[in-house]
């Protein structure tokens, strides 16, 4: 479970906090523009062993209905999940526009 992305808004001067503290887990942008390749999960092969979920540096993989699911908003396409997957259920594909 991840924090939700807020509607992006420009901060007016009066809204910028005067002290150095602010709300935790406050997301305004996604990271998806970083990818040149994207992991694609083979739903037939995937057994839901959760290795990719454990080793993802960005935590974008969750398990839905016993299969791995990727949050493409925040996946950076590093490919660790595809390498860690012993049964090769994740493949890296070129990012299409």
């Amino acid at each position: 479970m991840r924090p939700y992305v807020r509607e992006k808004k420009d901060f007016s001067f009066s809204e910028v906090p005067e002290n150095t503290s602010f709300e935790a887990g406050y997301l305004t942008t996604v990271n998806s523009g970083w990818r040149s390749i994207r992991p694609v999960i083979n739903g037939v092969k995937c057994v839901g062993c959760e290795q990719c979920y454990l080793y993802c540096p960005d935590g974008v993989i969750s398990i839905k209905d016993g299969k791995a699911a990727i949050d493409y908003d925040f996946c950076k396409g590093c490919g660790i999940c595809a390498k860690i997957c012993k049964i090769k259920a994740i493949e890296m594909e070129a990012e299409r526009k």
């Binding site: 924090p3 997301l27 970083w34 057994v47 540096p57 960005d58 935590g59 590093c78």
Partner: peptide
């Protein structure tokens, strides 16, 4: 298929949406 290690830790993400390089250890 249960993963004992994954079950022993929180399902919540506490470090999410960060700008680290892809594949950051």
């Amino acid at each position: 298929m249960a993963n004992k290690v994954a079950d022993s830790i929180s399902r919540e993400e506490f470090f999410y949406g960060h700008k680290a390089c892809a594949g950051c250890g």
